[in-house]
């Protein structure tokens, strides 16, 4: 059985209201088939699938997944609130994650973060997690070690991974977002 997946591209902007297409249903079915012993194991893959398709996981996603796997909605929602990668609101079109743990911090991650924040015109918000620009173009948050500490500081912009991101490179990255 082929398990090729087309999705897997970060899509942080939403909206969650898009159509549930046959292609999406098919991908969900393929993912569930990977867990012949317990369909419940497919909750995380389906959460990823939903988030990548619709940008975030709202009540509609929780309901859809719970139904597919014959689970209580709380059994889906409790994962959304536990795992930091899942979000319940849209982020920016370009979502930046700056690694903040010790090796990256020693390499200047704090300066990189401050530079990005300034370039994107972001103010710390009331929410936990990411800061999102008013026009929805950019969002920014800290991340824990991204397993590339030898090329600190490192940044993940949507799916794209960037190494040795100093203030100059941060400016180029933001400039290249279109």
């Amino acid at each position: 059985m082929s398990t090729a997946l087309e999705v897997g591209t970060e899509n942080c902007a939403g909206p969650e209201t898009g159509e549930i297409t046959p292609a999406l249903e098919k991908q969900a079915t393929e993912l569930i088939a990977r867990y012949p012993v317990s369909a419940r194991s497919a909750v995380m893959p389906l959460l990823h699938l939903w988030q990548e398709t619709f940008g975030y996981i709202g009540p509609r996603g929780v309901e859809w997944i719970a139904k597919k796997l014959s689970l209580q909605e709380i059994q889906v929602l409790e994962l959304v609130t536990f795992y930091p990668w899942f979000r319940q609101r849209p982020y920016g079109k370009f979502h930046f994650r700056v690694c903040r743990t010790l090796p990256c911090a020693l390499g200047g991650a704090g300066k990189t973060f401050a530079a990005l924040q300034k370039l994107m015109g972001l103010k710390p918000g009331a929410h936990e997690g990411a800061m999102v620009s008013a026009d929805g173009r950019f969002s920014l948050e800290y991340s824990e070690c991204l397993a590339s500490c030898g090329t600190a500081p490192v940044v993940l912009c949507n799916d794209n991974f960037h190494e040795k991101v100093d203030e100059k490179k941060a400016t180029e990255l933001v400039g290249g977002c279109s």
Partner: peptide
């Protein structure tokens, strides 16, 4: 199977719980 940003999934029994579709 993809994780979702939690360090504790590296601990083997946490990993197993996660693979079972739980916290």
């Amino acid at each position: 199977h993809r994780g979702a940003g939690a360090y504790i999934c590296g601990e083997e029994t946490g990993l197993i719980e996660s693979l079972e579709g739980k916290r």
